[in-house]
């Protein structure tokens, strides 16, 4: 019986023109888990994430959230999406960026101000809130982008390569926060090509050339392949495929 916030992909294929980016992917993301999508760049992670977020539509197969078929505009209010590119308005300040997206999610007045303060504290950017985004470093942009995704306290958080360019100490604190959010019931889907981050996920899907090559908890995957690291496990699955 799928929980209300679980997401199911059922034989999903996505083509762009003649090019097939995703082939027959079936998986389920359980409610309030941290689900990792692991794969090299160009493997189709971003495309899959967009399908799971209900932004894009599959060429064949379906994606469900609970018993609702995606894509559906109303469901987007439940989703916090952080794209791979920082997708910020560089000519605005951090505050103005936050204000814009908060308003799009229907936050206003006191709630909006409170949430903006909370998320900025979380990514440790309070001091830079009045600064123009164009003056931000790469890591600061990444953090602001993450802060925006968290603004409306989404039930489902979808993060495409969230920790690229973020310093290790802050990365740890972000992961702690993600863990805390998942404990409180938020479902988190995260893409990464960093193997040690993959280890922190509850379950992992390994993707290569648009196909799902393995699915399970990090420990189970390592056990199954008789390897000690996720990287080796990935190589084994990849090798078995080729």
């Amino acid at each position: 019986m799928p929980n209300k916030e679980s997401i199911v992909a059922d034989h999903v294929t996505r083509r762009f023109g003649k090019k097939t980016i995703l082939k027959e992917i079936s998986l389920e993301v359980f409610s309030s888990e941290i689900f990792g999508l692991l794969g090299p760049s160009g493997s189709g992670k971003t495309t899959l994430v967009k399908l799971l977020a209900g932004i894009d539509e599959a060429s064949s197969g379906s994606v469900y959230m609970g018993n609702i078929t995606l894509p559906r505009r109303e469901m987007l209010s439940k989703i916090g999406y952080m794209a791979q590119s920082d997708a910020l308005y560089e000519e605005l300040t951090a505050q103005e960026n936050l204000d814009f997206f908060a308003s799009l999610f229907g936050l206003s007045g006191k709630t909006k101000r409170r949430r903006i303060e909370e998320v900025m504290a979380l990514v440790n950017l309070q001091d830079a809130i009045k600064k123009l985004v164009s003056s931000f470093s790469g890591g600061m942009k990444r953090r602001l982008s993450l802060a925006i995704a968290l603004l409306h306290q989404p039930k489902i958080l979808i993060l495409d390569e969230p920790t690229v360019g973020i310093d290790p100490i802050l990365r740890v604190s972000i992961w702690n926060e993600l863990r805390a959010m998942s404990d409180e019931g938020t479902t988190i889907i995260i893409t990464t090509h960093v193997m040690d981050e993959a280890d922190k996920c509850d379950r992992l899907a390994m993707i290569r050339n648009g196909s799902l090559i393995a699915l399970g908890s990090p420990d189970a995957l390592k056990q199954e392949t008789n390897t000690s690291t996720i990287e080796q496990a990935f190589l084994t699955y990849g090798g078995a495929q080729a």
């Binding site: 977020a53 999406y81 794209a83």
Partner: peptide, 14 residues
Amino acid sequence: TTGTLDRLLATPIK
């Protein structure tokens, strides 16, 4: 091109 349209369209905006 900066990806803000994608982000904009990931909100419930019509």
